[in-house]
Design a protein around this nucleic acid. Structure first.
Lengths: 101, 101
DNA sequence: GGCTGACGTCAGCATGGGCTGATGCTCACA
DNA sequence: TGTGAGCATCAGCCCATGCTGACGTCAGCC
């Protein structure tokens, strides 16, 4: 179900930079230095986006010495995918419903 | 695939009011008057959101005399759902990939 | 212990986008 | 043809949010 609370999660994913981060992390677990190189963004900016993703539960961190690895949480993405799929299915099922004016 | 162009579509859906509109339209085709009643929003505000949804291809309109019906396009929602599902599947498949620092 | 690199936090700035009121357009109906 | 309802557009305001620079913290290496 797509509750209003999920708009916050969708909003987190509705940013080009954050979506790029998520796509990169879907392929392999990376640390901030890698992400800085691959995205070309400033470290501060990236750190802010990563904080947003962390707070939303989209990624989780794993300290490793001086470095910090970021790993993607597939469950969150799957829940979003299921919500939209369910919405599309509902729309298809009720395609002929039309309320009279 | 989640191209950068899709962030615009996701951004359109990342608004509580617009998501509410989409959920209502998933159940039945409605015209603006109904949506004004059901959401409690002003007509002007709703018209703005509907324009955004129209431009994004999420809904399509059907004139009916003085009224205008809004119908949901399930294809767009399905494409978003598939993109996120694919991303989640990729993340699961590459869960053990970790780039050395 | 001093230094450097990795990373986070904070304050400030600027842009984007949502909300509103005013206005205009079009259709239906008397 | 005049009127009112349904709907869109526009300009303006204001708040949320993304970007940046400066600074602080922690770990590892000399």
């Amino acid at each position: 179900m797509l509750t209003s609370a999920k708009t916050d999660l969708i909003k987190v994913l509705a940013d080009p930079m954050r979506l790029q981060i998520v796509q990169l992390l879907a392929v392999e677990t990376l640390c901030t230095t890698h992400l800085v190189e691959m995205t070309g963004a400033k470290q501060t900016n990236l750190s802010n986006h990563l904080k947003v993703l962390r707070d939303a539960g989209v990624v989780e961190t794993e300290p490793c010495g001086r470095f910090k690895y970021y790993r993607l949480c597939p469950d969150v993405l799957e829940s979003v995918a299921e919500s939209f799929a369910e919405l599309a299915a509902t729309a298809r099922a009720n395609a002929d419903n039309k309320r009279a004016c």
